[in-house]
Design a protein around this nucleic acid. Structure first.
Lengths: 117, 117
DNA sequence: CTAATACTTAAGCATCTCCTTGACTATTGA
DNA sequence: TCAATAGTCAAGGAGATGCTTAAGTATTAG
């Protein structure tokens, strides 16, 4: 218990920033250079590069430089793995509801048995 | 474009902290009081209360006080809505792959047509 | 009534985050 | 070659974050 997943830390931390989420939302539509990513963003290129470093640190984005252009793309596996964390939580929640439902059904049954006497 | 969702900001920000994620993971299994949540956590009760404020601010958790006990529970709708963000990104990614596949198929077709001449 | 319980609030502090500017390197088009 | 392009690196600053301790308020068990 209490084991925390530093990968998830970094992914959520990365996605907590609206600029970085915008970058991810851009990149799922296809790869882009640093300047292309920076173009619609209201900040310096250096700031965008820093955001990209955070995204790369989280594994959400990887990039490679060819000539003077760095091309960035999303890593869908990391996106999917994170989605699965939510699915896991939902499963636990739903299981609890089931148990609660069963319990309620049992109680009703007991009541009915009593009333039949 | 570039409209950022402050709700998602807060949710991801909330989930970026391992302590807060642990609290959510505890709460999907069922409601708990503040003290119960704090018990396994290596920090002061006040710190846990602060984490809970962040979680409530994000909508992930809601709580009500009865007597001197505050009972906390997850808000599954917010969890689900966040999961859907990922599903949306995945959809965009997959659509891009499809288009890429079609393009590739078209090119192959064109090549074959040329070769047939 | 009194003491213990279950928070709540506030102040303070070290650290991290997000951005800036300025100087720099490497590549490429004319 | 020389200037523009594309990105990199480092220092610094305002504000946010994640704790702490200390002092407070209700609520409840005895």
């Amino acid at each position: 218990m209490l084991k925390h997943d530093p990968d998830l830390d970094r992914v959520f931390q990365a996605l907590a920033d609206p600029t970085r989420r915008a970058i991810v939302e851009r990149l799922v539509r296809g790869p882009a250079s640093v300047s292309q990513l920076a173009e619609p963003l209201p900040m310096s290129l250096a700031a965008v590069v820093q955001h990209l470093q955070v995204l790369e640190g989280s594994g959400l984005v990887r990039s490679e430089k060819v000539g003077r252009v760095r091309t960035c793309r999303v890593e869908p596996a990391v996106l999917r793995r994170t989605e699965e964390w939510f699915a896991g939580q939902r499963t636990l929640w739903e299981r609890r509801l089931e148990r609660l439902g069963e319990l309620l059904a049992d109680e009703t049954e007991e009541k009915e048995e009593k009333e039949e006497k």
